[in-house]
């Protein structure tokens, strides 16, 4: 799908807790199990808020730093899209909390998306389409989660998911820019990754489960989705692109699936940077976090392919031109 928009990403700020959890210090049944986990899942350490910081807390730091870095004023923001599966409250969404705390104007259009790993690219597509419609020149996207698998009693079992939130700034340019998107959604397999014990469906059964929104994953169905949907859609998309992508910013649910996709697509590992080793799977914050950490790879007039898949099940990819002058920063929070 070709999209033209005047908006371009101008900056990315990542925010994550100061606390580092080392995989070596996590409980495993044996040394060999630990070794296989590190080699195949790839998480060597990750950041954890331990319940002390929410996605909204991290997002607030990220947005403040982004606005300061770009010398933008909150009153200039015409659209704020918040993406998280771990909002402070079931209602209202975090976007309204950001508006109050950061003093976004009452004319700012607020939007909250309850989406997983594909959330950043989904929100990017929405921002590109909505920005011109709303006649604004500045947009903020904020995406990420905290404690997604780690209700208090389950923190010991979480070895995969890390905590991080990214704030992304988009600004209108004087010309239309070309973007290409590809997406697929598959709600019929929603139980492949889902949180059974939360919100209204759970309240109707037993409200005591509400404090345990542990996400369940069916690895077999997720792998099927990668082989049957993600790879064919990516191959079709590559065939349709006028200019090949030089860099691939690929979601990493684990190192094994990341490597599998790179090999199947015939991509260069050096042009597909990772962050799962140091941050774990950080859901919708992963793609902007990888971009922020690898800004040095960006060159002028270069196309990048952003690819993500996960909760839904869903897949989305976008070919975009990321400016080598992108403002990037990171904030450690405690």
């Amino acid at each position: 799908m070709k999209v033209q928009s005047s908006f371009q990403i101008k900056g990315i700020v990542s925010s994550y807790p100061k606390q580092v959890i080392l995989t070596d210090n996590m409980p495993f049944n044996s040394i060999s199990e630990l070794s296989i986990f590190k080699r195949k899942i790839g998480v060597l350490k990750r950041r954890s808020s331990s319940g002390k910081l929410t996605a909204k807390d991290l997002g607030t730091h990220a947005i403040k730093n982004l606005l300061d870095g770009l010398k933008w004023k909150a009153e200039e923001i015409g659209l704020l899209i918040n993406v998280t599966q771990t909002p402070d409250y079931s209602t209202p969404g975090n976007s309204y909390l950001y508006q109050k705390e950061l003093e976004f104007p009452d004319s700012c259009f607020l939007m909250d998306l309850n989406v997983g790993c594909t959330g950043f690219i989904q929100s990017l597509l929405i921002a590109l389409a909505q920005g011109d419609l709303l006649n604004t020149s500045k947009i903020i996207i904020v995406c990420g989660d905290t404690d997604i698998l780690t209700s208090t009693e389950r923190q010991e079992s979480n070895k995969l998911m890390g905590d991080a939130v990214c704030a992304i700034a988009l600004e209108a340019q004087n010309k239309l820019l070309d973007y290409t998107f590809s997406f697929q959604t598959n709600g019929s397999d929603f139980q492949s990754i889902y949180s059974e014990n939360s919100f209204a469906r759970s309240i109707s059964k037993d409200s005591s489960h509400l404090l345990s929104p542990v996400i369940q994953m069916n690895g077999g169905l997720i792998f099927n989705y990668i082989t049957q949907i993600v790879i064919p859609k990516l191959k079709n998309m590559e065939l349709s692109l006028e200019t090949p992508s030089q860099i691939h910013f690929l979601h990493q649910p684990n190192l094994m699936y990341y490597e599998y996709i790179i090999k199947k697509m015939g991509w260069d590992f050096k042009q597909a940077p990772t962050c799962i080793q140091d941050f774990g799977n950080v859901s919708s914050a992963m793609i902007p976090l990888i971009i922020q950490k690898n800004k040095h790879l960006l060159q002028k007039n270069q196309k990048s392919l952003l690819v993500s898949f996960g909760v839904g099940l869903s897949f989305i990819a976008a070919q975009i031109e990321l400016s080598h002058n992108l403002f990037t920063n990171e904030v450690e929070c405690e």
Binding site: K40, G220, F223, Y257, K263, K264
Partner: peptide, 24 residues
Amino acid sequence: FSSLNMAILLTCIELEFDVVIQPI
């Protein structure tokens, strides 16, 4: 046959033999 070991098996079989096997 832990879930991780099974995932590793399924992934390497697909890569080497181009065959998707279900966990069951």
